[in-house]
Design a protein around this nucleic acid. Structure first.
Length: 494
DNA sequence: CGCTTTTGACCTGCGC
DNA sequence: GCGCAGGTCAAAAGCG
């Protein structure tokens, strides 16, 4: 099996200076042997550069978004591709913001030989392990521990504990690799165990407003944390098996750890679909990992794998654990890439106008009960007034952290490839449920982190507009996290 | 009065 | 088998 790299650029533009900001590159590994670079007109654009197309059927193995400094304008797509490879070789690792979903060795384009084709050995490594990475690389990469703005207190406790003894990439990865193998074995030993998704988020209220209705049925003092753990069950349906427990982080009382278990057997209100889609995507990843016994065994790459260009930053934002009886994936929303990198760079590189967040950034989880319509209305009003489609699109896209500018960068080069080919490829990609759920979760996570909570409308608008811009041939795909939408799905075709 | 929360008891799984 | 910890139950209390 080979590797496909699809690089998706998401341009950002500062609304005041009209200067181009950072770029997101989205690498997608699939199981076919192709390398594509996606580019279209405008802020978000696509073309496909397909070097080799052996099969249109593939599975999404990895989905990464890296934030890079601006690159140079290119004369042609072919030149751009060369530049991309060049970039991959020279890019400074700590310039990256990453958001990754999928299964990966993280050996993304470490060297030129890795692109576009991968050796069988690398293919095997790509198959190994299940990773959900949501930025945070700056916490794990310890090349410069004195990096300004990288506060240790922002780091999730779990990773903090690990990173204290495993400050370097290699050792950390080694641990994770070992653990992942154990996890895999455990997952296979206990197939009946329900997967859990834990969400760490800053929340002042008793629970996170995830859009569902919950009833508390118990409370316990758990070992190792004086803060009581509260148990809730979903009350939106009498037979709904979904439970969650909520516990405050001992180290930082503003952080709430919410662990979800089970799947809703009823329709969800639109406001609940964002979290549900995120958690279900995470669960599906766990399940995929645990059920893929017929495929090559899954394990994380060796710590000694020296062929990676990008360090395998298993972000502190996400961990997979089976230390308890249930396989658990932890999503950390307390260390958004935006904030960490923003903090890291704003004082040094960014012009003053970058030091203000968009209004949406001040949104937070509701401090009231989980089903508070008042808080929802408050949020809704904020969303409507501050994040219409147009304003969203013109505001540097939620003012995600920008990298230092090198050059202006809007390349309007016309694609040299047939529309049909692009459309075909786009359909293949966008019709893949794994990709849909992964991208939905990824974007909802990154937007959710930016806003400090679940901002459904913004997620919907952001994800929808971006996705449709990225894949204009996909037929108006829509991320439906909107509280005003009627569908319970998180991703659909209109 | 009905719904929710609290809280001690009980059950279950796991490690030794 | 025993002890421990996590999880659940259900009666009592609280609240609107």
């Amino acid at each position: 099996m080979s590797i496909v790299y699809i690089i998706l650029f998401i341009y950002t533009r500062d609304p005041k200076s009209q200067q181009d900001g950072g770029i997101y590159k989205l690498y997608m590994h699939t199981s076919t042997s192709e390398f594509r670079r996606i580019r279209t007109q405008g802020h978000l654009s696509c073309d496909f550069v397909s070097q080799e197309s052996q099969s249109r059927a593939f599975t999404i193995l990895n989905l990464c978004i890296y934030m890079l400094p601006n690159s140079k304008s290119s004369e042609s797509p072919a030149q751009e591709m060369d530049e991309t490879r060049e970039e991959m070789d020279h890019i400074r690792e700590d310039d990256l913001v990453a958001l990754c979903l999928g299964r990966s060795s993280l050996s993304v384009a470490k060297n030129k030989d890795h692109l576009p084709k991968a050796s069988k050995q690398e293919d095997d490594s790509l198959n190994q392990g299940l990773v959900l990475r949501l930025d945070g690389r700056s916490y794990e990469y310890s090349g410069d521990q004195n990096d300004a703005g990288v506060s240790k207190s922002q780091s999730p406790t779990k990773i903090e504990e690990e990173s204290e003894t495993d400050q370097k990439w290699g050792s950390s990865i080694g641990l994770k690799a070992a653990r992942s193998e154990e996890d895999e074995a455990l997952l296979q030993q206990h197939p009946a165990k329900k997967a859990r998704v834990a969400v760490r988020a800053i929340c002042n209220g008793p629970t996170m407003n995830d859009g569902c209705q919950w009833r508390k049925y118990g409370q316990k003092i758990a070992k190792g944390n004086p803060c009581p753990r509260a148990y809730y069950r979903c009350t939106m349906s009498t037979s709904c098996p979904v439970r969650k427990h909520v516990q405050r982080c001992q180290e930082d009382l503003s952080i709430l750890l919410t662990t979800y278990e089970g799947s809703h057997n009823h329709g969800l209100p639109p406001a609940a679909t964002a979290m549900a889609s995120t958690t279900s995507a995470a669960v599906s990843m766990l399940k995929t990992s645990s059920t893929s016994t017929s495929q090559p065994s899954l394990s994380l790459p060796s710590a000694t794998s020296a062929t990676t260009k990008f360090p395998p930053f298993y972000a502190p934002n996400t961990t997979i654990s089976t230390s308890q009886s249930h396989p658990t994936i932890t999503l950390d929303l307390t260390t958004p890439s935006a904030y960490s990198h923003y903090n890291k760079y704003s004082s040094t590189f960014l012009p003053p106008h970058h030091t203000t967040y968009s209004p949406a950034a001040s949104l937070n989880f509701s401090a009231s009960s989980s089903s508070s319509s008042a808080s929802f209305e408050h949020w809704r009003n904020q969303s409507i007034s501050s994040s219409s489609y147009a304003s969203l699109y013109n505001r540097t896209e939620l003012q995600l952290p920008l990298m230092p500018h090198k050059n202006n960068f809007i390349n309007q080069t016309q694609p040299q490839f047939s529309i049909e080919k692009i459309a075909d490829a786009t359909k293949e990609i966008t019709s893949n449920p794994s990709f849909q759920s992964a991208l939905a979760a990824a974007i909802s996570s990154i937007v959710g982190k930016k806003s400090g909570g679940i901002a459904e409308t913004m997620q919907s608008q952001f994800a929808t507009s971006h996705f449709n811009s990225i894949f204009p041939q996909a037929g108006n795909l829509k991320f439906d996290f909107s509280p005003f939408a009627s569908s319970k799905g998180d991703f659909r075709k209109l």
